[in-house]
Design a protein around this nucleic acid. Structure first.
Lengths: 105, 105
DNA sequence: TCAATTTGGTTTATATTGTAAACTAGTTTA
DNA sequence: TAAACTAGTTTACAATATAAACCAAATTGA
């Protein structure tokens, strides 16, 4: 068994998009994430909550111009998980050519 | 929306492991994949079938020493899908620092 | 020689996950 | 004051993943 498990929280398209975006930007608003990811609001809401529950992101809810405003930012825990995930999956890709023959009978 | 969709066939741990292994080895037996991935036989059987259905791999069933023997190999279509998947997800990782500020209000 | 075990899988049944659609709560506009 | 818009949340259903159970043929042991 040559593969490490991929963090199931991060191994999901939308959550990975969110974390990738947050890794490059101090904080991000709900609508920014909505536009950048192209997700539906419902799906985005749920995946944000899930990332918050595992403490990969911090979510601050406030108001701007009387409208609700949700801002997200990456926690250190989230950043570390992201780095581990990137390393792990890139290892998968490099399984290629590491074992040139088929299994000996 | 800055992210391409990740091929849902490949964006699954075990299937990605299988394809990664096949990308580096002419062909592989069921039991080789079983050991290298650490999966259960049931799960492996199903994911092989799924990869075969979408024609990412070719599956040849024969016998060796009177026992059934299943061998898998990557198709050109599968190899291309794998390359696209690798490119796509690496793009996600590079969303980092491509957009330095938060969204302008 | 026939019961138990092993090989090499497949099928089934359940639990988990993902997501679209519907809904909520409040705000603005006409 | 009704309609439309903002910014989300909740719900209900569909799809997915996987462990557990099963199967057929081969082999081993008493």
């Amino acid at each position: 068994m040559r593969f490490k498990d991929l963090d199931p929280i991060l191994h999901q398209q939308l959550r990975l998009q969110i974390i990738s975006l947050l890794a490059g930007t101090e904080k991000a608003e709900f609508n920014f994430l909505l536009e950048e990811t192209g997700a539906s609001k419902g799906n985005l809401s749920i995946q944000i909550k899930k990332l918050q529950e595992v403490e990969y992101i911090e979510v601050v809810k406030g108001y701007r111009n009387n409208y609700p405003l949700t801002e997200c930012s990456l926690t250190p825990k989230g950043r570390m998980a992201f780095e581990i995930y990137v390393d792990s999956i890139e290892n998968y890709f490099r399984a290629v050519n590491k074992d040139s023959g088929k299994k000996k009978s």
